[in-house]
């Protein structure tokens, strides 16, 4: 129960950060990328603030703690390979982000604002994740058969 409550509160801090920062607003996100149009550099401050804070905090956490206070181990990706899958996937994500102005971390908190556009984007995004998962499963099954 304590674990779930703490997760809820951490999620709320994340959502509050997204709302205050402007990341929940597609117009602001798209203007950040519109360097040769209506450029709004605000997102540099979001990314910079989040990145520097996290980098300092992670260092302290990993130096002082053997394990998380409420869990068995730190679950951190170990994969180091920069492969075609990572690059193609990230490029694809960028195209979608540029078309819609929403990224997953911006869209989920934006759901709370109650606009239908967010709901439509999130529904499409979840369908995209499910479709990619299925395609990936088929691909791996075929690879095993071959």
């Amino acid at each position: 129960m304590t674990r779930l409550l703490s997760s809820l509160i951490i999620g709320a801090i994340f959502g509050l950060g997204i709302a205050i920062s402007g990341m929940a607003n597609p117009a602001k996100v798209l203007n950040f990328f519109d360097l040769f149009g209506t450029w709004d550099p605000s997102l540099i401050f979001v990314m910079g603030g989040a990145l520097i804070t996290t980098a300092i905090g992670y260092r302290i956490v990993f130096a002082k703690q053997q394990k998380p206070l409420m869990g068995p181990t730190f679950v951190v990706p170990k994969n180091k390979a920069i492969d075609a899958r990572l690059i193609a996937g990230s490029a694809t994500f960028g195209v979608g982000w540029g078309l819609a102005g929403f990224c997953p971390g911006g869209a989920i908190p934006a759901l709370g604002l109650g606009y239908s556009e967010t709901l439509i984007f999130v529904a499409a995004m979840i369908i995209g994740i499910i479709a990619a998962r299925q395609a990936n499963k088929r691909f791996q099954e075929n690879a095993i058969l071959a």
Partner: peptide, 14 residues
């Protein structure tokens, strides 16, 4: 379309 593409991209891009 953006939503679908984001979903596919973040899955493969992890």
């Amino acid at each position: 379309i953006g939503g679908l593409i984001v979903g596919v991209g973040v899955f493969f891009g992890s």
